[in-house]
Design a protein around this nucleic acid. Structure first.
Lengths: 143, 143
DNA sequence: ACTATTTAGTAGACAATATCAACCATAAAG
DNA sequence: CTTTATGGTTGATATTGTCTACTAAATAGT
């Protein structure tokens, strides 16, 4: 296989398998969340004063998708939305208590997947991988 | 950001941006294909006596998805299906002449994306990345 | 102060991708 | 010669991504 198609294949497959494994782990833990729910909740948790717009920017997804996601998460009572103090168009999104509890369990499920993913790899290898990934990400974003 | 969420984020984002960039490049070349079409055509081209089942195994996708994909590609006259000599349940899938032509242009579009993706990276870095990716892929598949 | 342009978020329609279960025909195993 | 496994198909449905149009509020330019 030539190196070109190699990186393409590696990337697609790794991302796909990682998604599948994570999804399965989440489900096996009995958590009623799909992939994007989890991803969004993570970001909300780590972003101090998180707005819908930030989520769209960080993930690169369409605003509309974020709106829907947040609506679902709110319907499940996992997040709260409070008016933004300085901008009446905007809202601040945060985890609810229920959301925090759910995330605690989700993190466990994800840790299990990561442990498998990184089995037999040194810390250096992992950080090399991550920094190369960031570099490529930058390359794509520039253009 | 802790290293755990880092690799997760890097992986999701890189795969997503790569997919978006590729999709856009294909479209800008005026090619009437979506991501999975392209991916499937690539595999068909590189697999000598390709069957639907092989495609499902290699990509890790559901058989049903492959069936539908092949149906669409056949409707676009990009592939041909001929009965498998040794197994009457099975068919051998191959590119048609139209398909081959289309792929030639597709490859150009993809090369442009890859050039951007890998800008400023040495051959060693790329092959390091690919081999680490393969390692992780193996890890996920084992379990 | 007043129009014009951006920006934050929402809603609808739809395309693309993924999953699951049931099914048919053939093949392989016992 | 029955049972089971395999290759492929179909239908239903869930998830994810994209595009357009829209409201309301903020900001810029004059």
């Amino acid at each position: 296989m030539n190196p070109d198609s190699d990186i393409r294949h590696a990337l697609w497959q790794l991302a796909f398998q990682f998604k599948v494994s994570t999804k399965r782990a989440i489900r096996d833990y009995g958590l009623p969340l799909n992939g994007m729910h989890v991803r969004t909740l993570h970001l909300i948790r780590s972003q101090p004063d998180c707005t819908a717009n930030q989520l769209a920017t960080i993930t690169g997804r369409d605003k509309a998708q974020i709106t829907r996601l947040l609506k679902e998460l709110e319907a499940m009572a996992l997040i709260t939305r409070t008016p933004h103090p300085g901008d009446r168009r905007s809202q601040i999104v945060a985890l609810s208590d229920t959301g925090r509890e759910l995330m605690a369990r989700t993190v466990e499920a994800e840790k299990a997947v990561e442990k498998r993913l990184l089995k037999g790899m040194s810390k250096e290898e992992v950080s090399t991988f991550v920094s190369l990934a960031h570099k490529m990400l930058e390359n794509l974003r520039e253009a």
